[in-house]
Write a protein that binds this DNA or RNA. Structure first.
Length: 270
DNA sequence: AACGATACCAACCGCGTGCAA
DNA sequence: ATTGCACGCGGTTGGTATCGT
C-alpha cells in the first residue's frame, strides 16, 4: 500500500524532471515540413531506435516522445490517409463493442490507421450518441428507482428518437454504398461474434439504442478480470480465428495485404 | 460579409508498464 | 528488491476548417 504511494511519488517526480528537461528548449506544437523531413530521413535510414536519441541524432529540437508520436501517427510508411470507409467504420464499431476504448488493439485490425485516428473518429462520430444515450438511461433508471410504471406511451418515443441517430447514419451509408447498409451486423453475422452489436435485419427500427448501445456497453461482467466478457487475449485470439476462418489474415497471425482502395477483405465481400 | 457553432484532427499530457542496471 | 529510464496507451486540449444563420 505504502509502496504504491511511494512509487507514485517517484514516478511523479520523474515526470516532473522529464517535463523540466523537455521544457528547456524543446520545441512544441505543429511540426514543420523541415522537421518532418529530418525525422523521416533519420528513421528511414537508422530505424526506430531510442526515441530520445533519435531526436538528438536527427538534429531535432523535440522530445523523444514528440518524435515517436509524429512518426507513428503521421510519417510512418503505409499510413492510410483520407476518410474512414464504411467498412472500416463497421470494424471499429464491432471491435469497440468487444474491447471498449482499446484503440491500439482496434487499430491492429485496421492497417494503415493509427490508434489516434480511430480514437478521434470514434469521439467525433459516436461520443455524442453515447452521451445522449446515457442521459436517457439515467432518466429510465431514475424512473425505476422512483418505482414509476413504465410509460408505454413515452418509451416508444424515446426509442424513436434514438433510432433516428443510428438509422440516419446507416441510411447515409446506404446512399454511399448500397451493399453496406448495416455493416456492423454483417460483420457480426459473418464472423459469428458472440456479442451482437446491431440488428441483423434490414428493418431500421431494430437498430434502436438498446440494441446498439446496450450491446456496446453491456459487456459481460461476470469476471472482473475479463474485458467485454472475455480476456483481451482470448478475444483477440477469437477474432483472429474468425478472420482466418474466412480466409482473412488477422494482422498478428499472418500477412495483411492492404494494397486496397478501401478495406481489402481478402476476397471477402461485405 | 461577419460571426458563432460545430466538426475534425494533430499534438500534448499523465500514467502504467516493462526492462535493464 | 529497488531504481532509473524509455516506451506505449488512453484521455484531453487547442488550432483550423467548415457550416449555418
Amino acid at each position: 500500500m505504502l509502496d504504491w504511494g511511494v512509487d507514485q511519488v517517484h514516478h511523479r517526480n520523474h515526470d516532473l524532471y522529464q517535463q523540466q528537461q523537455q521544457q528547456q528548449g524543446c520545441r512544441k506544437g505543429p511540426w514543420t515540413p523541415e522537421e518532418d523531413k529530418l525525422l523521416s530521413e533519420y528513421v528511414t535510414s537508422n530505424g526506430e531506435g531510442r526515441w530520445s536519441s533519435v531526436a538528438k541524432s536527427a538534429g531535432l529540437n523535440r522530445s523523444g516522445k514528440s518524435c515517436r508520436l509524429r512518426w507513428v501517427n503521421y510519417l510512418r510508411p503505409g499510413l492510410k490517409r483520407g476518410q474512414i470507409t464504411p467498412q472500416e467504420e463497421g470494424i471499429i464499431l464491432e471491435l469497440h463493442s468487444l474491447w471498449g476504448n482499446k484503440w491500439s488493439t482496434i487499430a491492429r485490425y485496421l492497417p494503415g490507421r493509427t490508434d489516434n485516428e480511430i480514437k478521434n473518429y470514434w469521439r467525433t462520430h459516436y461520443k455524442k450518441k453515447e452521451k445522449s444515450f446515457s442521459k436517457q438511461e439515467k432518466v429510465k433508471r431514475s424512473r425505476k428507482q422512483l418505482d414509476l410504471k413504465p410509460q408505454s406511451q413515452q418509451q416508444p418515443q424515446q426509442q424513436n428518437q434514438s433510432s433516428q441517430f443510428v438509422s440516419e447514419d446507416h441510411k447515409k451509408l446506404d446512399n454511399e454504398q448500397n451493399t453496406f447498409s448495416y455493416q456492423t451486423s454483417v460483420f457480426t453475422d459473418q464472423f459469428h461474434m458472440p456479442q451482437v452489436v446491431a440488428a441483423t435485419s434490414s428493418d431500421h427500427s431494430m437498430m434502436d439504442e438498446g440494441n446498439l448501445w446496450g450491446s456496446l456497453w453491456s459487456l459481460d461482467d461476470h469476471d472482473p478480470h475479463h474485458f467485454g466478457g472475455c480476456s483481451e487475449q482470448r478475444t483477440a485470439a477469437n477474432v483472429s480465428e474468425k478472420f482466418n476462418g474466412c480466409g482473412i489474415d488477422a494482422p498478428f497471425c499472418g500477412s495483411w495485404d492492404y494494397s486496397y482502395n478501401g478495406f481489402n477483405t481478402g476476397g471477402y465481400n461485405y
